[in-house]
């Protein structure tokens, strides 16, 4: 009786797919899981935020300028009397939008370059990797400032700039994994069947690189949000009137001595978002790919 019990338990365990094992492992990691819940909350806010804000984040109210925290304005109001909480909620969309879209673009370009570089090797690899080395030599934010300086300020250009500086890290990481995977026997088996190069790269090598891409993507979104906020703070990103966290910081820095809430809450929003994304990335890395740790 007990034997049949164990057997059936084993069968259940073996039947459980990779996805549910992943979910189980993920929930074991408290910090990562809480970060994930926070990130989900941010995404929900980004989607429905503009419809649930208590006040219009754009409309000035000159009767209630620079108020402190109160029952009516939980996070106070800014120098035009706009509700800070509403602006923060509305700003989630801009910050996450910039962060995610720029990193996705950068990841796509970087992945293709990394796959090509790692698979073909020789001069292709050398060329791509030397260009990446050059880009690595610039501090990220300096590179982004340079690009925005050339293209001009604005959200689209910020996205492009942030995407641009995340390309080399993705390229280098995917290349490393490609070098490892392309020597594996099942790739040789594919070649012996007669598979063409693009089939081998995209159908067989690319899926093996997905876990490390996901992990790095998550961490890089935090960096991208920070970079976008920095650009906005410097006046190179979102226009000062739009509810962007970086722009809010920039606008309120003159009041840092008198109205700390104006600086504190946007800073806190950026801090918590980046922290949660970094923790989420760490947790995903531990589950998906325990080998990369840098």
């Amino acid at each position: 009786m007990s034997e049949t019990m164990t057997v059936s338990k084993q069968q259940i365990a073996s039947k459980r797919g990779t996805l549910s094992t992943f979910w189980h492992d993920f929930r074991q990691r408290k910090v990562a899981f809480i970060s994930f819940l926070f990130f989900v909350l941010l995404v929900i806010l980004a989607v429905i935020g503009p419809y649930i804000v208590p006040f219009n984040p754009q409309t000035p109210d000159y009767n209630h300028v620079l108020q402190g925290m109160s029952q009516k304005h939980w996070a106070g109001t800014d120098e035009y009397g706009r509700d800070v909480l509403s602006r923060l909620i509305a700003g989630t969309r801009i910050s996450l939008g910039i962060g995610i879209s720029s990193v996705l673009i950068g990841a796509m370009a970087g992945t293709i370059l990394g796959l090509v570089s790692g698979y073909f090797g020789k001069w292709v690899d050398k060329t791509i990797m030397r260009i990446c080395d050059v880009l690595f030599a610039f501090p990220d934010i300096l590179l982004a400032i340079g690009i925005v300086a050339i293209l001009g300020p604005g959200l689209k250009n910020v996205i492009f700039a942030v995407a641009f500086f995340s390309v080399p890290s993705f390229a280098r990481m995917v290349r490393g994994k490609t070098l490892e995977v392309k020597e594996m026997l099942f790739i040789e088996a594919e070649k012996s069947i007669g598979a063409k190069t693009n089939r081998i790269i995209f159908r067989h090598i690319f899926p093996e690189t997905i876990p490390i891409i996901i992990v790095y993507l998550t961490m890089q979104v935090g960096t991208a949000i920070l970079a976008a906020a920095s650009l906005s703070f410097l006046g190179l990103g979102a226009s000062p009137s739009s509810p962007d966290w970086g722009a809010m910081l920039s606008m309120s820095r003159d009041y840092i001595g008198t109205a700390f809430n104006l600086v504190f809450f946007p800073g806190l929003a950026i801090f918590l978002t980046v922290l949660s994304l970094n923790n989420l990335g760490d947790g995903l890395r531990d589950i998906l790919d325990p080998k990369i740790k840098d």
């Binding site: 594996m184 026997l185 099942f186 040789e188 088996a189 012996s192 007669g194």
Partner: peptide, 23 residues
């Protein structure tokens, strides 16, 4: 030309754990 000859000439590998795509 090789590719067309891979059809009548197939290979079986030593390590059945590594020669099948895991995904």
């Amino acid at each position: 030309k090789w590719r067309s000859y891979r059809k009548p000439m197939q290979m079986i590998f030593q390590d059945p754990y590594a020669s099948l795509s895991p995904r």
